[in-house]
Amino acid sequence: MITAALAAPAAIWLFLFLILPFCAMLVFAFGKRAPEGGYQAAFTLEQFANLPSRAAAFWNTLVLAPIGALLCLLVAYPVAYYLAVKAPPQRRMILVALIVVPFWTSLLVRTYAWMYILGSRGLPNLLDLVGIADVRMLNTPGAVLLGIVYGYLPLMIMPIYVSLEKLDLRLLDASADLGARPASTFFGVTVPLSMPGVITGVALVTILLLGEYLIPQLLGGGKVFFIGNALVDLFLQSRNWPFGSAIAVTMVAVVVIVLAVSMRIAWRFAGARRVDLV
């Protein structure tokens, strides 16, 4: 009784603003676009059949999101390794906090910073002064990837740091005592044991990137656009709500698939690790 009363506000909220909106979106996705924009009741697969017309957005997202996540991993791993294994213990907490803080400050502002740096009055202007003229940095896939690595680096570092922190350092000593070179200790012991963190980080960043709007919008300038950008365009410019809903439903399906696959991989690694240690 008390339990039900305590849970009621959250339950109502979840129903009204999560379950109901999703049902509405599903209904819209099978509907038709009214002549003046908006929704007209129907039951048709027309919108889903039309998905290939936004293939470029899907392609960009499904290619650049995983590449971005992997680039992020390349930068994040050494940092996480340093924080968990090499950093002096008394300074570790402050160094970790310094990684977390940027993540909780506005992504818009942090992306704007790169727009500022890569824009024609920033770096290209400096390059111009030393004689390298006409370099375009903004509005390229490279700029979008840079923005992705920058924006999501903290989120990648944290899970890897957490799994490396649990690493028993005596295992590394044992490996060295048994004659393994540092490189083979690293790839044979450290990396496999940190895999759960790596998988969590890559999955988390990839999933968030699938819904990214700001980074491609500001650093890709409409030339490198993601599904999120196509959605904003469909909803707020061309007012084709049913088609937009169909894309959003497809996007949720992609997110669920990525999540399921990564959970499966993570599970396998967790299982494998347990066997190894016994």
């Binding site: 979840l14 509405a24 819904g211 909803f235």
Partner: peptide, 25 residues
Amino acid sequence: VFDGLFAAAIVVPGVVIGIATLVAL
């Protein structure tokens, strides 16, 4: 059920939450 719904609220991209809420409201 609650765990699943709260997890969905966190994992579903903001763009989709925005669209779904707009459409429903």
